[in-house]
Design a protein around this nucleic acid. Sequence first.
DNA 1: GATTAAACGAGACGGTACGTCTTGTCTTAAC
DNA 2: GTTAAGACAAGACGTACCGTCTCGTTTAATC
Lengths: 199, 199, 199, 199
Amino acid sequence: MTSDKKPDRSRRSERSRRAILDATRALISEVGYAKVSIEAIAARAGVGKQTIYRWWPSKGAVIFDSFLALSEDGSEGEPALPDTGDLEADLKTVMRATAAEFADPEFERPIRALNTEILGDPELAAQYGEKLAGPVEELKKARLRSGQDAGQLAADADLDLVLDMLYSPLTLRWLYRSGPLTPEYADALVDATLRAFRP
Amino acid sequence: MTSDKKPDRSRRSERSRRAILDATRALISEVGYAKVSIEAIAARAGVGKQTIYRWWPSKGAVIFDSFLALSEDGSEGEPALPDTGDLEADLKTVMRATAAEFADPEFERPIRALNTEILGDPELAAQYGEKLAGPVEELKKARLRSGQDAGQLAADADLDLVLDMLYSPLTLRWLYRSGPLTPEYADALVDATLRAFRP
Amino acid sequence: MTSDKKPDRSRRSERSRRAILDATRALISEVGYAKVSIEAIAARAGVGKQTIYRWWPSKGAVIFDSFLALSEDGSEGEPALPDTGDLEADLKTVMRATAAEFADPEFERPIRALNTEILGDPELAAQYGEKLAGPVEELKKARLRSGQDAGQLAADADLDLVLDMLYSPLTLRWLYRSGPLTPEYADALVDATLRAFRP
Amino acid sequence: MTSDKKPDRSRRSERSRRAILDATRALISEVGYAKVSIEAIAARAGVGKQTIYRWWPSKGAVIFDSFLALSEDGSEGEPALPDTGDLEADLKTVMRATAAEFADPEFERPIRALNTEILGDPELAAQYGEKLAGPVEELKKARLRSGQDAGQLAADADLDLVLDMLYSPLTLRWLYRSGPLTPEYADALVDATLRAFRP
DNA sequence: GATTAAACGAGACGGTACGTCTTGTCTTAAC
DNA sequence: GTTAAGACAAGACGTACCGTCTCGTTTAATC
């Protein structure tokens, strides 16, 4: 036990924090997750390595935070999902959009980097669930609940399970690249899921 | 033009190949995926590093092959899935078993290693689909088809979609550690999926 | 433009420098020049390889420096050569000592290592002339000059040539192992040289 | 002691032997001694590595033999040194020629390669003395003896010593690159040596 | 305004692993 | 039984990063 001195958060340089997070995202986009190194981040950010090690426990944590920061200042609170009163139509809209996003090569590298990190680090996985996935999931569940109230979904449907059946196949197909992410596939998932949980 | 000489497959040492694959699996079990290095594999296998680099393009490929070899000589052809005539019961049996396997810490490390590797390498992902996942999927589809014939599944059900809806939520929950892999969850997935595709 | 960053000399670790130089000399003595590797030096010195590559351009340079360091802290300035007033006797004393030193198996390996290195690297050869051979040569010339003043050597004798004729045959015989390094041979060289340059 | 089977000299391929020796010399000229590898020689000669290892004990031996072969078929017996009756003039001619040869960059690399090899391997040094240096030395001594008979050299002069004093300074200056190899230097060596051994 | 203590940039350090290269041995097929 | 070819075990090469550890230098907050 050499030096348990905890850094003083109040004196942290916001300038450095931003530079590190920005450099991280830029590097992921440019060279891909596997080749992002702490040294490269520090050099790119014009920051000493120690400044990174002082505030983050691992490379994964930096990468994770770089996404978190993005979602935090990108949107002040998540936007609600569409609610036209037609659950099926709304879900298809959202699922098709998700499929399109996954297919967009622009997002491919960063999201895949994030997922790889989460896969290997339970700590980050927990944080991911809580900070990133959770809020979005709540929004989705709210829309489902609204559909439930409108009698478009069984009153006793387990909404977490519904979400799983909707999104998991899409997500896994993307992760494993095991099939094309077409609008038709998105629609088929919505149809089947709604059949399973119709009132 | 540096050195485009291709090695001569017919002169490959089977002895070394096995030693490398065995050492790889042993190391993954012992120290976990992240800490497996080519150097460690070579040392453990009593093999020169070059012998690994000569035959495999990447660490991921070695790891992948070590699983492939396991499945190839472990089972001479995959065993058929149970077919008692009751599709629901059989699916629940299989899904519960899958959930249990995922939860077994013994398999945790190796399978997670394999998945991490697949996630970051499209080449391996393709091989995975073809050599490992494909055959198993065919067996599963055969059982579904048998249920279809028995009138327990809609005649026009897209069996790939059925499989996705059954297994994806389970797999993703395991990958992301986003929830417990209980028999109840397995059962719920089977119930919902069968509802979606009942005749 | 890969990495033109020059290391900062002022921050160099004296501790590591000494450890490297010491380890180098020890290894040369123990296993011989040909088998000294950078890896072995680093391991022996308890130092990262990069610390060697950071400060020395080649293995030869390390070896050379290990000798330089020896001569620098071994003697605070070279000791003067004997000057009894009898040039012939003094030269014979020194030449016999040189012959004996060459014949001493203790010095054999290190000096031969140094010589091999110098032979293949003009850069080091220049440094050798300047830093190691030069100072000693000056002392020898000083003694010759004193002999010249005493009328024991021709006033117009080229002292560099005198030194060459004295030492080169001895040195070359040692390098090539082309003959025994006896006191008689040393004496004969002194006699012949003094005859050639007598007043 | 695994396989002491000695190869059968009578079945040796002369074609391969020549190809190896030629390739060796060519490589030394082109890339310099330090970068000549057995692999490169074998590839260049169109020969299996084992064919080299079967007939030569070390890389040095191959290099040495490549020179030996050169001197053997280049000249069927060494040419006699000039003997005009004027020893001083003849020696100056020969010494100036030697100095010029040393200075010729064409010969620089090969001869230096040979010397480096000899320096580190007593076995080769002995062979060098016997097969390459010896014969030439005998010729030189023959010329000296002729001068002795003509009364231009002391009758009791040790001819080996005379040769050493003539050639060693030149050779060493070349090896160490410690000074220019001018005709003047050659002349000065001859002058001084003849002074030392005049009748 | 001067003092002072922590965060900072920079980068040297001991290490691990990389992927390449060469060595000397061993194996195979052609002749 | 020698040869060309080349796979093999071994291990050094020089490079890239790791995470830790000084170094001066800002930069605030306290005096």
